[in-house]
Design a protein around this nucleic acid. Structure first.
Lengths: 144, 144
DNA sequence: AAATCAATTTAGCCTTGACTAACTTTAAAA
DNA sequence: TTTTAAAGTTAGTCAAGGCTAAATTGATTT
């Protein structure tokens, strides 16, 4: 058999979806560290109640998530106190904020309405590879 | 209502994240109906084993998902037989395939490597609004 | 100092989406 | 036709990420 069964690239999507599942697993973490960073910058501290309000979830959900982030080394927290980013969390937050900004600016630059861009960027940012991000960024420098 | 104090957009992210969670809930459904459609087109039928192989998950996972899709009216299936799209499933598959193609073509058109574009499109497609999709499409007609 | 209120935590529940292991059915080979 | 292999199913487990309701803590008021 001319053997297209070996590895037909068109049929070799499994890895794409595996990486997609990985990306999903990182999304909440990325959104949280980014938001915690924003809150610290804007309000001086990150409280559960503010996170719950901004994400539109309950305080209990925030609590669960923060425990997960703490377990994974992104934040530190003490009972009934505000939340802090670790260096690891800080680094991730910085990266995410920059990436978000590039995606948002790119969308606006090609003609997407700023409000729509804000929404779409929130979803898209987690699925943009370094390579694609570089292309977006390059397009910003030299518009058109 | 000149009044930007009413709803400070910077602090009004809750709805963005709610819509993001909705989008997530739809992703697997969309990926499955799209893939089932592809399989029917390419191989004449959609078998569990092919879905499992392409998504890189176990047969048991496919089984669970198909049950959910059936419950939600996207597919029909009988034990030990292949899977069919309902009209609702067919419609969704068609829409998803078209959207995927536009996102992919757009990425390639701005200079993203086709392999990278294939991967990124898989994640991005679920988060592109109608509006942004239209912009992508418009850019394809008149490149540059 | 006590009462109250807001914030936080805890406990328990649910769905999705993954897994393994064991079993059943169908189809193909011997 | 019997055996075997592949495909599909079932049962049970797990983590993530939501929820509600109830308990606790901390801060503010009286």
């Amino acid at each position: 058999m001319g053997d297209d069964t070996a590895v037909n690239p068109r049929h070799n999507k499994a890895e794409v979806f595996a990486r997609l599942r990985d990306a999903h697993a990182r999304e909440v973490t990325e959104d949280y560290v980014e938001m915690i960073g924003d809150l610290i910058a804007e309000e001086g501290e990150a409280r559960s109640v503010a996170l719950a309000e901004r994400f539109g979830v309950t305080a209990a959900t925030v609590n669960n998530t923060i425990k997960r982030l703490e377990r994974d080394g992104y934040v530190t927290s003490r009972p009934y106190r505000s939340i802090f980013l670790t260096e690891k969390g800080e680094t991730l937050a910085k990266k995410c904020r920059a990436r978000h900004q590039i995606v948002y600016n790119f969308l606006v630059s090609i003609g997407v309405d700023p409000e729509i861009a804000e929404f779409d960027a929130e979803g898209i940012e987690h699925h943009v590879s370094e390579e694609t991000l570089a292309v977006f960024e390059g397009r910003l420098d030299s518009p058109r």
